[in-house]
């Protein structure tokens, strides 16, 4: 059969322009990154014995250290709980103001969302370093760090939830002459409460993980001991701390997952 009947293949597809172009860009990025970061696999493999030496020392945890670790790890959970709560309380008004279906004024929404986006770009440890500078070394800095961190995260999750609610009850209440506050209390809250609690728990989980390293910069909790053991080369103690973190994270995740499943 003659070729005339075949459909025309676009130039880009015929010569795989997208695929080849993408691969070239990708290889260039890879090469550039390797140069910029001074990747040296040879060095990595020759020094691997040091790494394994470190691992083998971690493989013999100093169990007697467990008693010392318990108190700071509980403090970590406390920091996470209070930090998440403060963040959530501040997040609620912000998320209402950022929700498209509640606030029709696009300027207000835009400004609020801009602030939220700014907050979300800041990594947790960076916030911790700043708060340690402001309020001094200790758990307070950790609480504020987690408050700001969870504020950014929760506001976004909350306003996205609010935007997916059923609009009809809101309309009904407005038709009945309710003001904005009444609409929120009687039509919005009942619809979003469960997801809010679920997101609160989810953020709490993430904060427990995050809070375990905040102390590295002096912001309280188990991280302080992490830093202490690492800088005194007591890797056997580091191992105990890492294991303690693992246990706490798994327990908190399990409890929180269980509660979240019940909420659905």
């Amino acid at each position: 059969m003659d070729k005339q009947q075949l459909p025309q293949r676009p130039f880009a597809q015929k010569y795989h322009v997208k695929g080849i172009g993408g691969a070239l860009v990708f290889l260039a990025l890879l090469w550039g990154s390797s140069v910029m970061t001074g990747v040296n696999w040879g060095e990595f493999f020759t020094n691997l014995d040091q790494f394994f030496d470190l691992l083998s020392r971690m493989a013999h945890p100093a169990w007697e250290y467990t008693n010392i670790v318990i108190q700071p790890i509980l403090e970590t959970i406390q920091m996470a709980l209070i930090g998440t709560t403060i963040g959530t309380v501040i997040a609620i008004p912000f998320s209402i103001l950022a929700a498209r279906n509640l606030i029709k004024n696009s300027v207000v929404r835009g400004v609020i969302r801009f602030i939220l986006n700014l907050v979300r770009t800041l990594p947790d440890l960076l916030l911790a370093a700043l708060f340690v500078a402001v309020v001094g070394i200790g758990a307070t800095a950790g609480v504020w760090t987690l408050a700001v961190f969870s504020f950014g995260m929760i506001s976004k999750l909350f306003y996205e939830t609010i935007e997916t609610i059923d609009e009809r009850p809101l309309e009904a209440l407005r038709a009945a002459g309710a003001n904005n506050t009444q609409v929120v209390i009687f039509a919005v809250v009942p619809q979003v409460l469960n997801s809010f609690v679920s997101y609160f728990l989810y953020t709490f989980e993430i904060n427990v993980r995050a809070s375990t390293v905040l102390g590295y910069l002096g912001a309280g909790g188990i991280g302080v001991y992490l830093q202490r053991s690492l800088s005194s080369f007591r890797y056997d103690q580091t191992a105990v701390i890492v294991l303690a973190i693992l246990v706490v994270v798994i327990v908190i995740d399990a409890v929180s997952n269980n509660l979240r499943e019940r909420l659905q």
Binding site: F44, Q50, F51, L54, L226, L230, V242, I245, L246, I250
Partner: peptide, 14 residues
């Protein structure tokens, strides 16, 4: 769960 920071310190040793 293994803190990224601790990993970084371990690799700095290597």
């Amino acid at each position: 769960t293994f803190p990224e920071l601790v990993l970084a310190i371990m690799f700095i040793k290597a």
